Amino acid sequence: MNFEILQERFFSLRSNRMFELFVVAVILFSALVIGAKTYDIPENVLMVIGWLDTAITFFFLIEITIRFVGEPNKRSFFKDPWNLFDTLIVVVSLIPIQDSEMALVGRLIRIFRVLRMVSIVPELRLLLNSLIKALPQLGYVILLMFIIFYIYAAVGASFFVDINPVLWGDISIAMLTLFRVMTFEDWTDVMYETMEVYPFSWLFYLTFIFLTTFAFLNMVIGIVVNVMENEHAEEEREKAIAEGQITIEDLSNQINELKAIVEAQAKEKDRL
C-alpha cells in the first residue's frame, strides 16, 4: 500500500469522532484497571488484570503510531507538548520493570495514563491551557492572599496563643488554623473559643473570611473565566480562518480590539 494512502487513512481515522470516543473509553477502562489493583483480590484475577494492563499499553502504542503516521507534518508532531507527553507515557509503560526496583515508578507512570484524557478531549485541553495561561495573573492574587494570611496569623498568634497553643502556637500553625477557617471546617468552634476571652474577636474571623473566601477566591474565578473566554474566542477565530469564514481585515480589527482591552487592563492595574 502506498504510504500517502496509508497516511490519509490514518489521518481520517485519528480525526474520526468514534475513534476518539473509543480511545477515551480505553483510557477510562485503564483507570478502572489501575484502581482494581489497589484492592485485595485473588491471584488469578490479578493475573487477568495484568494481561488487560498489557493489552491497554499496546493499544496506546498502536494509537500513538496511528496519530504519528497520520500527521501530515511529521516534524511538528513532537512540537506539540501533548503529543510528547502521550509518547513518553506510552514508551515508559512498555519498559518491563515489574520485578525491579523501578516497579513503583512503573505503577506511577501507568497512573498518569489517565491524564491522556486531556490530550484527547479538546474541552479539557482548553481548560488546562487556560489555567496555565492564567497563572501569571493568579500569582499576584496568591501573593496578596499570602500577605493577608501572614498578617492575620501574626495577629492571631499574638492574641490567642494563651487561649489555645495548639491552634495559635506560632505563626505557621496560626496560618494552618486560618486555612481551616477559610474552608469553613468547624471554624465556629475556633471563633467561640476565642470569644470567651475576647468577645469582639468575631470581627477578626469575619473580616478574614470576607477578604479570603469571598473576595480573593472570586477574583481567582474571574481571572480563570476571563482567560477561558479569550482562549475560546481565539480558538473560534483560528477555526474560522481555517474554514475561510473570516477575512484578514476582520482579523486585524479583532486584534486591535484585543490590544485596546489589554492596554485598558494594564492601565487599570497601574492605577491599583
Score class of each variant (00 low, 15 high):
Asn2Gln: 08
Ile5Val: 13
Gln7Met: 08
Gln7Arg: 03
Ser12Ala: 07
Leu13Thr: 00
Arg14Phe: 11
Arg14Met: 14
Phe19Thr: 07
Phe22Ser: 00
Phe22Tyr: 15
Phe29Trp: 15
Ala31Lys: 03
Leu32Gly: 07
Lys37Phe: 15
Tyr39Gly: 05
Tyr39Leu: 10
Asp40Gln: 10
Ile41Phe: 01
Val45Lys: 11
Leu46Asn: 15
Leu52Gln: 04
Leu52Asn: 03
Ile56Gly: 05
Phe58Ser: 02
Ile62Asp: 11
Thr65Tyr: 15
Thr65His: 12
Arg67Phe: 14
Phe68Trp: 13
Phe68Thr: 01
Val69Lys: 08
Val69Ile: 00
Gly70Thr: 02
Pro72Tyr: 00
Lys79Gly: 12
Phe85Glu: 06
Phe85Thr: 01
Ile89Asp: 04
Ser93Trp: 02
Glu101Gly: 02
Leu104His: 12
Val105Arg: 15
Gly106Tyr: 12
Arg107Ile: 14
Arg107Ser: 15
Phe112Cys: 08
Arg116Gln: 12
Ile120Arg: 06
Glu123Trp: 13
Glu123Ile: 10
Glu123Ala: 04
Leu127Gln: 05
Ser130Cys: 03
Leu135Arg: 10
Pro136Phe: 05
Gln137Pro: 09
Leu138Glu: 09
Tyr140Lys: 00
Ile142His: 12
Leu143Lys: 04
Leu144Ala: 06
Met145Ile: 11
Phe149Asn: 01
Ile151Arg: 00
Val155Pro: 13
Val155Asn: 14
Asn164Asp: 09
Pro165Tyr: 02
Trp168Lys: 03
Trp168Ala: 04
Asp170Pro: 05
Asp170Tyr: 10
Ser172Ile: 14
Leu176Ile: 12
Val181His: 03
Val181Phe: 11
Thr188Asp: 15
Met191Cys: 09
Glu193Pro: 10
Phe200Gly: 02
Phe204His: 02
Phe204Val: 01
Tyr205Leu: 03
Ile209Gln: 13
Phe210Arg: 06
Thr213Asn: 00
Thr213Gln: 08
Phe214Glu: 10
Phe214Lys: 08
Phe216Lys: 05
Met219Pro: 10
Ile221Cys: 03
Ile221Trp: 14
Gly222Met: 04
Asn226Val: 07
His232Lys: 08
Glu234Val: 07
Glu234Trp: 12
Arg237Leu: 15
Glu238Met: 12
Lys239Val: 15
Ala240Cys: 10
Ala242Lys: 09
Gly244Thr: 06
Gly244Asp: 01
Gly244Val: 01
Ile246Tyr: 14
Thr247Glu: 09
Ser252Val: 13
Ile255Met: 08
Asn256Tyr: 14
Glu257Cys: 00
Glu263Thr: 07
Ala266Phe: 02
Lys267Asn: 09
Leu272Asp: 15
Leu272Pro: 12
